[in-house]
Amino acid sequence: MIVVMKPDATMTQIEHMAEHITGLGLTPQVIHGKHQTVIAALGEERQGLLEALEPGEGVEKVLPIMAPYKRASSELKKERTVVSTRDLVVGGGRIAMIAGPCSVESEEQIVSIAKTLRALGATGLRGGAFKPRTSPYSFQGHKEDGLKMLAAARAETGLAIVTEVMAPEHVPMVAEYADVLQIGARNMQNYQLLQAVGDSGKPALLKRGMSATVEEFLLAAEYILDRGNPNVMLCERGIRTFEDHTRFTLPLATVPYLNEKSHLPVVVDPSHGTGKSRLVAPMARAAVAAGADALILEVHDDPEHAMSDGAQSITPATFSQLVEQCRRVAAAVDRSV
């Protein structure tokens, strides 16, 4: 249920309603908007709730939340969420660029490319220290040493670190180094991991599972939000279909749909979404036009010799061109890069 308070409701009335909701066995979430305050009454809905909540002093109306994902729904929060850490701001009028190699290969490599990307307009540095690979024989990442290399790159550039965490027991260690905890597609429904990331309080970048519906995607986000962590970004990274001309199918209609159904910012990954470096820039431009709040891109200074995902990695020179192209597209839809 959503309890919409009157515009002139006092703090005493708002606090009283929150206590009343708690007394009914539900969890209150108070959201102060520009013009009105709403209180979400979260929990198992049952008969008689409407009648119990409507008479409250200062209450204008009580509405049911129709979506199964309560905290992520735009029914609950009309104003768009903005997630920020260091210089990385995702949401609002400016489109963020998160870029870097698929895997952290060495300290020299990650520091060097971080400096280049910072100069070209990136505000977030992506890079895998822990790498979930389809084959157990593929490079699995440098793990904590890789995190230390990312931290060294941040110290040199100020770029916010976005890196993947793969297991609940790894969350405290990764959170010690990272600014944003990424949950990969293969872990989208690892509910213990989602809860652990929620408990960390760190901003989270949640990637859509390759076979997940949008509703399942939003319900996965709900697990993080339900732990009291509001800083969640939704990342469309492509889904598995019958098509084989690309690594995955990047369904950009998801972007405006998520913007309609949820208040959470939306990130697009055209690198994983296509698997082909020559398709990254066109899909990045299309993502900006569709309403993405940020792009996350794989950039490597020598893709041919990358330790992972070289085929979908663009060069710094291509990244520079992509940023300029996206800047022109963004201007056409009243945004900026």
Rank of each mutant, 00 (worst) to 15 (best):
P270H: 08
P64T: 02
D302S: 11
A185D: 02
D145A: 13
L218A: 12
P265D: 06
S138V: 07
V214G: 14
P282L: 05
A178L: 10
V255D: 02
N259P: 10
P251R: 12
L218G: 12
Q29K: 14
M5V: 09
P303C: 04
R186A: 07
V267M: 07
R71N: 01
T27E: 13
K276G: 03
L225T: 05
T213P: 11
G201K: 12
D145C: 04
R278C: 12
V83D: 05
D301G: 10
V30C: 01
Q321H: 15
G291W: 07
Y257D: 07
L206I: 14
P136V: 03
K70R: 14
Q182G: 00
S308F: 09
P256S: 02
D226W: 04
A175V: 02
A294N: 11
E215F: 03
S336H: 04
L234T: 06
T254A: 15
V333C: 08
A18T: 11
A287V: 13
M5C: 13
E75Q: 14
L117C: 10
F242Q: 02
E260W: 08
V288E: 10
F217T: 08
L194I: 01
M1K: 06
V171T: 05
P230F: 03
E236S: 05
A99K: 01
G121F: 00
C326M: 03
T85E: 12
R94S: 15
C235A: 07
L147F: 08
P270T: 01
Y177F: 11
R328P: 00
E57Y: 03
R133I: 02
L49F: 01
I161D: 10
L234C: 07
